[in-house]
Design a binder for these strands. Structure first.
Lengths: 351, 351
DNA sequence: TTGTAGGCGTTATCAA
DNA sequence: TTGATAACGCCTACAA
């Protein structure tokens, strides 16, 4: 019971197999072929008997290769973040890396701390899905040679690849869809754009996309955490406005869709009569009657692309110019954008 | 641009500050007070100038303390898992540890691989929310002194603490609530119980809890991945059964609730007339009209308790007997368990 | 208060 | 095909 067989080390295996550290190291490295069949057998037996596992920490120390990728996530409970993270993790694994995840809960202080931590573990690359406030820290990391990938936000300061949604096109898709469905007056609801470039990109495209399509509309930016009450008021005002043009709400992301749906339900507003559409597909969007129209992001592809980008710089051209990879959203039309009056065939899903 | 200032090391800082490795080590360790104010200043300046960050990998090598906690998650896209993970991560951080997350996608092969990986990184403790198939690996880890905590499943083979829901009491709460709401015939829907002890515990309690309450019912166990079609058939059969006793469905976890809700909606079954209740609170349960009654798990507390358990063994009594921590669910009554006919005041939420 | 020397488990560079 | 030996960056006696 109190017996603690201690973790076996390379030397112990070597001793047990009657050989040298070097050979054992070669066996567990990628040079197994250089060893005689017989030696291989002895080492294998000894290792199994002792339950030996190479110490990745020591390994990382020597080679300077931690085989770790870090990921900074602003909100780990956000389904979008998790979906992307899933793609990132699978891709890391496929490349022989492990993923060290740090959640910041949208707190700049934690962001800074976690960034330092990831640096301390000598992650070989970094996927960032957070505000990126500590631009200085990031810049230094980049200068020291750590490849950076930003998810859905540009930082300007640090040289980094960017992977994310084609925001402009996504907004275009939304506007086109809403117009085709007969809605003429829109309210765009977003979280504060200051914190993320993708929010700015979407907001801007919304504002500029109205006129050319003959749509009216305005944007509402608020923090879901601190200004929840304001949302209700704004919705009331929007819905009570005089006029007969059909109105619709466009939600800038999944969190907003959730908050708006709650607010509408609290007001007994039937979905569809007032249009509702959101960026980000969530598992429940089909369940809330009559179904909420969404633009689904290819989260898995985005995650994989992020890692691919890191790998490229890790193995290939570390100092190539930053590149952008923009992915297309997929429209999933549902009842929340079919006006009961003029219900017509829903658009086709983009394949 | 092509300038790569390389990462600074302890020795370089020492040289730059005109002192020895030891003092710099002390400065960044927990012995800053032993240094003269003046030396502290020199070291601080040099470190800042060089952008020095202690290498956690090297640090871990010497002391054998990686300051890493590992977490094995069966399905990282499951909101329950993520919620617990959130608690785990925060707790780790509070104790000065980082969390290395490994997602297995419910695949035993990946589970084995990831377990080996976590071991290779010398995680000091392990939180396990997966099938735990490789019992041998776990047993060895435990024998080698790595504290283990199982989330919501017992393994028997390995000595490990268990943290999770008080399954028996949760089922009791569900049965009591459904009976009080006037439902007399129940269908319990669960994923295959073979893979997790908590599923077995819930299932068993369900079966034994019917009689004493004068309820009729049966259980349906199927894999949501491979037997989705069977679910629809079983629901049809249950709903079409002759008799007038009000019927209700009890879902063993959030995934089941989602699948069942989809199936009911595809059949245009109004919630409430047929009762629906699920274990696990999900953000959309309030949104699907008339609201789905759930039993919420205290995920944050569970996550924190898991880490607390690890810390206790890490710092205190490593070989104490395995202990169980069971947390109570909180009933959130909603419209899906109010029969339209005999609608009565909803029960009070447990605080 | 400060410094010296050795070692943690591994890989890499030699030489045999 | 094998092995001795020196790093890797840090921590920790021990000594001054």
């Amino acid at each position: 019971m109190a017996q603690t067989p201690q973790r076996a080390t390379l030397v112990e295996v070597a001793r047990a197999a009657g050989t040298s550290k070097t050979s054992v190291s070669r066996y567990f490295g990628d040079e197994r072929e250089r060893l005689s069949r017989e030696l291989q057998g002895r080492i294998a037996a000894a290792a199994r008997r002792l339950g030996y596992r190479p110490n990745q920490i020591a390994r990382g120390l020597k080679g300077g290769r931690s085989r770790l990728i870090g990921m900074l996530v602003a909100d780990i409970r956000n389904p979008y973040s998790v979906a992307v993270m899933h793609g990132v993790e699978r891709a890391c694994q496929a490349h022989g890396y492990s993923l060290l995840v740090a959640n910041t809960d949208n707190d700049p202080a934690q962001e800074r701390r976690h960034l330092a931590l990831l640096a301390a573990y000598r992650v070989e690359g970094l996927v960032i899905n957070a505000a990126g406030r500590p631009g200085r820290e990031l810049t230094r990391l980049a200068e020291q040679g750590t490849p950076l990938v930003l998810l859905d936000r540009e930082l300007g300061e640090a040289p980094a690849d960017v992977v994310g949604l084609d925001n402009a096109h996504a907004i275009d898709q939304a506007l086109d869809h809403l117009r085709a469905a007969g809605y003429g007056e829109l309210l765009y609801v977003s979280e504060p754009p200051a914190q993320a470039s993708s929010r700015r990109a979407r907001l801007e495209r919304f504002r500029h996309g109205l006129g050319p399509r003959g749509l009216a509309g305005e944007a509402l930016c608020l923090s879901l955490d601190t200004e929840a009450a304001a949302l209700g008021g704004a919705l009331d005002a929007f819905l009570a406005r005089p006029g007969t043009v059909p109105r619709a709400l466009l939600c800038a992301n999944g969190n907003v869709t959730l908050a708006v749906t709650r607010a509408l339900q609290a007001r007994d507003v039937p979905l569809g009569k007032v249009g509702l559409m959101g960026i980000d597909e969530l598992e429940w969007c089909a369940l809330v009657a009559p179904g909420i129209t969404t633009l689904a992001q290819p989260t898995d592809a985005i995650g994989q692309a992020a890692v691919a980008s890191l790998m490229q710089r890790l193995e290939g051209a570390p100092h190539a110019d930053p590149c952008h990879r923009r992915y297309q959203a997929r429209l999933i039309p549902r009842g929340s954008t079919c006006r009961p009056a003029s219900r017509h065939a829903p658009e086709q899903e983009t394949p």
